[in-house]
Amino acid sequence: MIRPSRLAAVAGSAALAALLLAGCGGKDTPAAPASGSSEASASATGQVTVFAAASLTETFTKLGKDFEAANKGATVKFSFGASSALAQQINSGAPADVFASASPTNMKQVSDAGAVTDKPTTFVRNRLEIAVPKGNPGKITGLADFAKPEHKTALCAEQVPCGAAAKQVFAAAGVTPKPVTLEQDVKATLTKVQLGEVDAALVYRTDVQAAGDKVEGIDFPESAKVVNDYPLAVLAKAPNSAAAKAFVAYVLSDKGRAVFTKAGFDTP
């Protein structure tokens, strides 16, 4: 009953974001990487099915194309979604080769069920950033502004990962935020910034990057204290485990790191 509305919500925000991006000419879309040799892997073949967190959509799609170019005969199929939903699907027997989760919690659900072979690797980290509309009309300078009632600010609801992270950040900074809204996911939060409905919001750095030039990011010192690890693992029941391992290696390669850095992720 609820799921479809959420999908609709996500789709709606994504559509809007796409619209806005298209509107500003897509200037800031990630540039193509330097043409590379295929040092990361011996040639893999067959189909690799990758379940990846929604926040990895842009980076993994790009990496998948690069991987296919480097390995003739290999195809990569993605299923992007909420990490919690993906974890549940894997535990219900979905035929996936690789799982890339946006949170260790969801990866743990899978590994606790014995569905991964090796210990999951943290391949990227994401941290929070203050997102403000272009030109910073609210003159936001730091976390302390979230406590001032003259600023309209948006946060993710505590129940979703970005909200939980925001809560820790504010606790670390000793700031009590007074948001006007607690959004259901990070994209919805960002939409409010893009439309200028709020002066600031706390979202992931990668989301600020992806939003293009409608949104500006402001870094703050406390962001380093709350870092969100993204674990990656080959699944135990992988139908094509050889190619899966090759894909994971490609993600962890320098070329992979370059793509993530460009998108705003930290790499370990």
Binding site: S5, T181, E183, Q184, A188
Partner: peptide
Amino acid sequence: EFGATITFAGNFPGQTRTMPLAVYIALESA
């Protein structure tokens, strides 16, 4: 009503968080 409300009016307890929004948020955690 859920979608238009959460998009236009946001989601804040006591102000704009109606039952469907509360249900949705609760579904994330509990």
